[in-house]
Design a protein around this nucleic acid. Structure first.
Lengths: 191, 191
DNA sequence: TGTACATCAGTGAACGCGCGTTCACTGATGTAC
DNA sequence: TGTACATCAGTGAACGCGCGTTCACTGATGTAC
């Protein structure tokens, strides 16, 4: 073959990576296949060698986004649970997370577009959110909380809402939104 | 004239009403001018008698959505503040609000589409959110809270996140998301 | 070793479609005389 | 009172454009003999 073994799999991964960034940056309906392929250094015609349809690629890209996020949350497993949770909250509710939408958590980024997406992508997203809730709840158990799942759901709602809101605001107001949630989430946890 | 006085103004309002519903129901990029005009019982050609562009109409529709919501929050001004707040929270975090997206609060519905919208619509949205924060903070002052604005921002983030998340989930999981936030928002307020 | 053929990831033109926008037209009514 | 014309909200065909998808083709390499 004229391409080394594994070349096609790498190309597919590159498309997926650039799709994950592009879909978050410009919205699921705001970027086309041609633009995504161009980001990956390819032309649009080759797309269907790798995916059955645009919807298939969106679903795979959503799964990829959640996997990236989960890896970040799991990092540093030797650190005590409260410290890991605290670091996660600070990062999630940071101006940097708000600004770097292309690499940020897919939950606030895609939440309000999801009801209009294809069922395959919705399933990827639901699985990702369920796994995220489970991870947060497990961390809260390690922190000694008795109501981990309810608290995890409530906290995730606040995190997601704060980041989504901050992205709609100017820099100064976004900072207030983030600071307010940082403070109140910490209060709730006794941090 | 062949139409009664005020007819044109009424038509404009009808377009705006159906646009406000359609944009929320199908997404800002998910519904076209022709479909909105059809909802209003008109054909698409007449649109530019009423609006300079699609973006102008979206901005006007966003303003309209927030005005509807503000009217709902202000209703029942004779009721004591804690009761009004409590009722607002129950309605906001209800399965009915999650289901009736076309008439619901624009904040969770449009949050993640907003970064991709035209500046006019973004300005309408930012004004609406600022007014909503101010209204909530005023209610919290009436409830005797000392940190009204920070708490209002944090609570709004949680409300918005919970509704946005619930809309991405199945009925059973959405119910858990809503119940978790109802419980924890109440805990925070001492209700 | 050299030649003919097979493979297949990627290319780019072409398709049908729906979009936002434009524009010549319709037709019911008000006004001028 | 009757006729000709002006008004203007709304109609529907047409435009240029970008989209997702299809498909005949390219060209570098591997294989057959």
């Amino acid at each position: 073959m004229r391409y080394p073994a594994g070349h096609k799999a790498e190309t597919r991964k590159a498309i997926l990576l650039h799709a994950a960034a592009g879909l978050r940056e410009q919205g699921v309906r705001g970027i086309g296949l041609a633009a995504i392929m161009r980001r990956a250094g390819l032309t649009h015609g080759g797309f269907y060698q790798h995916f059955g349809s645009r919807d298939d690629m969106v679903a795979a890209a959503v799964t990829h986004m959640f996997e990236e996020g989960a890896a970040l949350l799991d990092a540093g497993e030797d650190v005590p649970a409260p410290d890991r949770l605290s670091r996660f909250l600070d990062r999630y509710l940071s101006a940097s997370h708000v600004a770097r939408i292309a690499r940020g958590c897919p939950v606030p980024t895609l939440a309000s577009e999801l009801p209009h997406m294809a069922e395959t992508a919705r399933a990827s997203y639901r699985d990702g959110v369920a796994a995220l809730v489970a991870r947060l709840a497990a961390l809260l158990v390690e922190c000694g909380r008795s109501d981990p799942e309810t608290l995890a759901r409530s906290m995730l709602s606040e995190l997601v809402g704060a980041v989504a809101l901050a992205r709609t605001q100017g820099i100064a107001e976004a900072a207030e939104t983030l600071a307010a949630s940082r403070r109140h989430v910490r209060l709730r946890l006794g941090f």
